[in-house]
Design a protein around this nucleic acid. Structure first.
Length: 270
DNA sequence: CTAAGGACCTGTCGGC
DNA sequence: TGCCGACAGGTCCTTA
């Protein structure tokens, strides 16, 4: 569910509560997530203090001295902190229990999420070939233009490719392309450098604004503090097919690209 | 190499 | 009210 802003919001929500806390126990009620939860975690985690909580793409990285716990929320995952006494609900698959009797609880109905282990000094294969973080200086107009050269796939599909740039999910791909005035169906390699530069700016702006607002309000998310709900954010096109374009008033169109809902204004986006 | 499609899984919603 | 298909914020893996 979460797009990058929701993952970042989750990171910020949980980090202060688990940093420097020591793991006492790992409870796995359902080990069949996207990949099996490694059984070695039961031996590896207890007794270790959390050094920090980072993020790479949509992976949360919980750092320990002997390695890093990777947590991905998939489509429907959420994390919240609960008392270890708190009874588990349906789809509460994993608890990481801490020495203050709180547990970081992973809830994930669709089980597209993952909990994986990366030993110290190694890079997990899932993190090995990721593109730059969109909100850092590593994501530049030059980089996007170089990647786009010769590529015939639709620009929307292209910016959702993790090798090009990470963290651009379906909602924000739609929003960034609208903001940049680019037709999502246009071939990536046939867009001018200037327009790609604009797109880089809009991706950064859209994601940064969503993070500032605490993520998009969508029903599955539960805030890191346990407060239900996302945060109100106005989306210009996503989920608004048929409604008037905020710019010109014409009805927004919807097509399917790579099996994903794609909403745009055929007048404002070229 | 690129591009397209299937796969994983549950819940919800609209239509008949 | 009940059943069925379509769809949902992700992304890896296989196939052409």
């Amino acid at each position: 569910m979460p797009e990058l802003p929701e993952v970042e919001t989750t990171r910020r929500g949980i980090a202060p509560h688990i940093k420097h806390r020591t793991v006492t126990e790992l409870v796995v009620r359902q080990s069949k997530l996207r990949w099996p939860v490694p059984s070695e975690l039961h031996e590896v985690l207890p007794g270790q203090p959390v050094l920090s909580v980072e993020r790479r793409a949509k992976y949360l990285l919980i750092e320990f001295a002997s390695g890093t716990l990777l947590v991905h929320l998939g489509m429907s995952g959420s994390l919240r902190l609960v008392s270890v006494e708190q009874e588990a609900n349906k789809h509460d698959h994993v608890d990481i229990c801490f020495d203050n009797d709180m547990a970081l609880r992973l809830h994930d109905p669709r089980r597209f999420g993952a909990v994986l282990w990366q030993p110290q000094g190694e890079t997990h294969s899932l993190l090995a070939s990721l593109g730059p973080e969109p909100l850092t200086d590593a994501f530049t107009a030059e980089h996007l233009a170089a990647c786009a050269k010769g590529r015939r796939s639709a620009i929307k599909t292209f910016i959702m490719d993790n090798h090009v740039v990470v963290g651009v999910g379906n909602i924000y791909a739609n929003e960034a392309l609208y903001a940049a005035g680019i037709d999502p169906r246009r071939q990536a390699g046939r867009i001018s450098a200037a327009r790609l530069a604009r797109l880089v700016d809009e991706i950064k702006t859209v994601l940064a604004r969503a993070i500032a607002q605490g993520g998009t309000t969508l029903k599955d998310f539960v805030g890191g503090d346990g407060k239900p709900g996302y945060f109100a954010q106005q989306l210009n096109v996503y989920g608004r097919a048929g409604e008037p374009c905020p710019g010109c008033g014409r009805a927004l169109s919807e097509v399917r690209l790579g099996q994903r809902a794609t909403v745009f204004c055929s007048h404002c986006q070229r």
